[in-house]
């Protein structure tokens, strides 16, 4: 068995055996769907003609997937370093790519299950989401989103030494970003300068691409711009992640 397969297997078992985390990873975005669904039931976003629900469904989905990708890898790396698991791997000939690769596959699977569950629930008659014709584009868009945010999580996981600091740093980045990138509220209702600020946030690009693919907002160029933006952030985060990666707390 390869190091990559073994780490993926161990990661999979650890994931499914932790029922609490498993439950909340998938329930958290759904909670937002329900809350926003109740608040904005029947309303439409000004001028666009889209229902609020289809708007927020896309935003909450992209935020939920990004959040899970960041937190999952950041917690794992921090925990592996403080438990000396990374030191154990460092002393074996297994390549770093096997470590990150195994976590990447797990993050992709988590993202896929999250998306299926979320879209499935949103399509129930109570919420009434009707996916746009471009929905198959969700697959490459969300996969790219997971990639970008996983790399951001690698950076956080390399700096943070405690679960508390992972939560603090990741929340500090992800929550304001969710609001400023239009995940929860339409960007159009924000001041112009704030809309410009959102352009330096990776979640903005994931949001735009998912919004078109799932809810039909904007046009196809939103998907390509979104993917290009995510790709740029992925390259930047990847470069920083390689530079800042630490096998042990003292190195």
């Amino acid at each position: 068995m390869s190091a990559y397969a073994a780490l993926t297997g161990a990661g999979y078992r650890a994931q499914v055996r932790d029922k609490t985390t498993l439950f909340f990873t998938f329930a958290f975005p759904l909670l937002f769907l329900v809350v926003f669904g109740l608040i904005f039931k029947g309303q439409a976003v000004e001028e666009s003609g889209l229902s609020y629900l289809s708007y927020t469904a896309a935003g909450v989905l992209s935020w939920g997937v990004a959040n899970a990708a960041v937190f999952g890898i950041a917690f794992t790396l921090m925990q592996w370093r403080s438990d000396d698991i990374l030191r154990l791997i460092r002393m074996s000939p297994a390549p770093l790519s096997a470590v990150i690769g195994s976590r990447y596959v797990i993050a992709l699977v988590v993202g896929a299950v999250q998306s299926l569950l979320f879209v499935g629930v949103a399509m129930l008659p109570v919420f009434g989401l009707e996916p746009a014709s471009g929905w198959p584009l969700l697959v490459p868009v969300l996969a790219l989103g997971v990639t970008t945010f996983l790399l951001l999580g690698v950076i956080i996981g390399s700096f943070a030494n405690t679960p508390e600091s992972v939560a603090a740093v990741a929340n500090f980045l992800m929550l304001p970003m969710a609001f400023l990138s239009g995940s929860f509220f339409p960007l159009d209702s924000m001041p112009g300068w704030l809309q410009k600020v959102s352009l330096v946030m990776p979640l903005r690009y994931l949001n735009d691409a998912v919004s078109h693919a799932l809810a039909g907002r904007g046009d196809a160029s939103d998907v390509w711009t979104g993917c290009a933006g995510l790709l740029v952030f992925a390259v930047v985060f990847g470069a920083v992640a390689v530079k800042t990666f630490r096998w042990t707390r003292s190195s």
């Binding site: 078992r13 650890a14 438990d83 000396d84």
Partner: peptide, 23 residues
């Protein structure tokens, strides 16, 4: 390793199997 350096939520055999695979 430190006595804490185990892959979480694995059995002793699963942990050692993972280490063996790393090598």
């Amino acid at each position: 390793t430190q006595s804490s350096a185990f892959f979480v939520r694995q059995t002793a055999h699963e942990h050692l199997r993972t280490v063996a695979a790393l090598y």
